[in-house]
Amino acid sequence: MQSRLALAAIVLAILVMAGGLFYYFSGQKPVRVTATTTTSLYATGLLEYLADKFHGTHPNVQIEFIAVGSGEALRRAEMGDACMVFVHAPSLEKQYLEKGVIEDGKIFAYNYFVIVGPPRDPAGVKNAKSAVEAFRAIYIAGEEGKAVFVSRGDNSGTHVKELSLWKAAGLDPRGRSWYKESGQGMAQTLVMASEMGAYTLSDIGTYLKLKSEGKIPGLEILYASGEELINIYSVYLVKTCTGKERQAAEEFAKFVVEYQDLIGSYGVDRYGQPLFYPAKGKEDYLRQVWERLAGG
């Protein structure tokens, strides 16, 4: 009996050691740079793609991404647990810049949020002249019982954007029966909206990915342009990060800003259109828009 127990313990120990050895040999590289980022940006695969390319010329550097919510990404930087931050939430970024947590901000890409909904478009969003007008149309159709809107409701960058559009329209949909807060990520929210024949606001990357996989047959892009819907991606260095890690992080930030072709062509082969537009050449315009978004 005891020998059987001993055998069980040995088998368990061997399993654990096998895992341990595996982990050891697949282990880490000399300089580890910790970068926090938002889940939606990480999920597009762009950052790992850029890090892979960077790794080709800088084999000694390993960029490690911690994908969390926008707020958590910056909060972890404040705690000193990240060396760089990739985010797209100007008003939050501004707070942390003012607190002196992050510095050396560079805009490296942008794209547009899209208003998606059922193809028959009961609210007439397609004919809207602006995003704010589109939201007004959804509100009216909602009150008439013809439309439903699914909100992220999770304080994410996309949710904050959505709330700012309702505010700009002078409306408050919270608590209305046609306004559903999912409290979940973008992918789950899109699937929900598709199932319910509802409208929602999405980032372009998540939408195109799910659409190409046939997971959201009940949705199509109804409105997708204009300064109101612009989504600006920035990279920052964290002040408390120093030494070799800092140096490597600075090089990676420079790489991301310099090799813009990589960003502009990313995703074209899979989705037939880019997920991101390079910031190069538009820095001044994007900076102005960023200031407006951060101030609001």
Partner: peptide, 15 residues
């Protein structure tokens, strides 16, 4: 890879 890592981490934690 993730399966082995989960085994290693959770097995060690259990011990």
């Amino acid at each position: 890879e993730v399966t082995l890592r989960s085994l290693y981490i959770s097995g060690s934690a259990t011990l």
